[in-house]
Amino acid sequence: MNETYVTLRGWLGGEVRHRLAGETPVAEFRLGVTARYFDKQRSDWADGETAWYTVKAWRQLADHCRDSLRRADPVMVHGRLSQRSYVKDGVERTVVEVTAVSIGHDLSLGTSAFRRTSARREEPRREEVAAGAAA
Rank of each mutant, 00 (worst) to 15 (best):
V96S: 11
A46I: 09
T111I: 10
L8Y: 00
G14I: 03
A130F: 03
Q83G: 05
G14K: 05
R71V: 07
R125A: 15
A134H: 05
G14M: 01
W52A: 04
R121T: 12
L20R: 09
V55W: 00
H105K: 09
G79W: 03
D67N: 06
A119E: 12
W58Q: 03
Y5L: 14
R84H: 07
L81F: 08
S68E: 05
V96P: 07
G132W: 11
A130W: 01
D39A: 03
T111V: 15
W58I: 12
V75G: 00
D106M: 01
R121F: 07
S68R: 12
S85A: 13
E3L: 09
A51H: 11
P74A: 06
H64D: 15
A46N: 09
A100Q: 11
A51D: 15
Q60C: 01
K88P: 02
E97Q: 07
V33H: 04
E28G: 10
R125P: 12
E23D: 12
R36F: 02
R17Q: 13
L31F: 04
G32L: 15
S68I: 07
T117W: 00
E23G: 15
A46L: 07
F38Q: 12
G10H: 00
K56D: 12
Y5N: 12
S85F: 02
W11R: 15
V26N: 03
C65E: 05
W52D: 11
D63C: 10
D89P: 07
A51L: 06
P74F: 13
G32T: 08
P124Y: 00
S85V: 10
W52F: 08
F38N: 06
Q41D: 10
H105C: 04
G13Q: 02
R121V: 13
G132H: 13
D67H: 14
H105Q: 08
L69C: 06
R126P: 03
F29V: 07
A130H: 04
G48M: 02
I103S: 01
K88C: 07
Q60R: 14
W45E: 14
R9C: 14
Y86Q: 02
P124S: 05
V98A: 06
L69M: 13
R17S: 14
Y37H: 08
R19I: 03
D73N: 11
